[in-house]
Write a protein that binds this DNA or RNA. Structure first.
Length: 324
DNA sequence: GGCCAGGTTCGCT
DNA sequence: AGCGAACATGGC
């Protein structure tokens, strides 16, 4: 008999649970170790080598948010519950204060409509920096559809399986899992030799203790950049995305990103798409809240892609698959 | 079949 | 410093 533990969380308002949880799964039912459907966000946490399925739902409203969290498979240990509570809070960015950003954005012709449309969207964070780094490297250069396939394969192949109520869930792979998989193992997931090399290499460094990614959390931005860029396979684009999605910094801006530059051109109503340097220059006026700008622009983009997918599904009747 | 997609590295000027 | 090619794969 599985014991359940439940607890509640009170996010900093405004907090839109639906938007934030949907962003965390890229507006899909399930992505990586996360899922969101029927109003319930789920995630497998991997703590001290044990797996816990966490289910989160909203019991409040955007302006008076309140979350209920259920833990499956955990013994009723208060220290553990406290850790899980902390991780859930981190993952959904519930302690982020969007106020200063909204103040800046309200009067901005490009950002105004965006923050009104997505009011209460917080920035989801990956539970570990390792997960964020692997996740983002997997997305380098390729289309979002290909990234979805690679990421899903990685989690379902090297993550740990958890069955609850007849449903199958996966945790995100541990550094040691990916180190053990090695280049050969990763190559079977349709990764390029280069990408497989990057991920095997970083995983091995983390697993062996030579690289302590989690300690970067408290370090100044410049030092984080320096340390991460020195890793093979990590450039500025990757670091900036890590600032936004894994390090909880408010001013990350992946200015090299093609989709971001495209979205930027749209909200600015400019004809030509800005180059990386130009995009960085333009973004200065939103500093130090550019992580929000990035997230809100992508929310718009990802939501549109999701609608197009749903449309295709209705017309063709085809089912999305990762087994090509 | 060709070209591009949410980059990065390596090898040239 | 700056530029171009290679890298794997899916979709139009």
């Amino acid at each position: 008999m599985v014991k359940h533990v439940t607890f509640t969380l009170a996010p900093v308002p405004p907090f839109n649970f639906d938007c934030t949880a949907a962003f965390n799964t890229y507006f899909r039912d399930s992505y990586g170790a996360n899922s969101f459907n029927n109003g319930i966000a789920r995630r497998v946490f991997d703590l001290d080598g044990r797996l816990y399925l966490i289910s989160i739902c909203s019991r409040g409203k955007v302006e008076s948010p309140f979350l209920e969290v259920e833990v499956d498979g955990a013994p009723p240990d208060t220290a553990l519950i406290a850790r899980i509570s902390e991780q859930v809070a981190w993952m959904l960015g519930i302690n982020q204060d969007t106020g200063p950003f909204y103040q800046l954005a309200e009067g901005d012709p490009a950002m105004g409509p965006l923050v009104r449309a997505w009011r209460g969207l917080h920035i989801p964070q990956t539970p570990s920096i390792f997960e964020g780094l692997v996740w983002i490297i997997l997305g380098q250069q390729i289309s979002s559809q290909v990234a979805f396939i690679l990421r899903t394969l990685l989690v379902q192949t090297y993550g740990h399986r958890l069955e609850v109520n007849g449903e199958t869930y996966y945790s995100f792979p541990r550094p040691a899992d990916l180190a053990a998989a090695g280049v050969a193992g990763l190559r079977t997931l349709k990764l390029s030799a280069r990408k497989a090399q990057y991920i095997a290499d970083i995983s091995e460094q983390v697993a062996s203790g030579r690289l302590d990614l989690e300690s970067l959390r408290d370090q100044p931005g410049d030092e984080v950049i320096q340390r991460l860029i020195s890793l093979r396979g990590v450039g500025m684009w990757t670091v900036q995305w890590l600032f936004v999605r894994a390090l909880g910094r408010s001013d990350g801006f992946p200015y090299g990103d093609l989709a971001l530059r495209h979205a930027l051109a749209q909200v600015l109503k400019t004809v030509a798409q800005p180059g990386p340097d130009e995009a960085l220059e333009i973004s200065q006026r939103w500093s130090p809240y550019r992580s929000y700008v990035t997230t809100y622009l992508f929310a718009d983009l990802l939501c549109r892609l999701a609608r197009e997918r749903a449309q295709r599904l209705r017309t063709t009747g085809e089912v999305e698959s990762v087994t090509d």
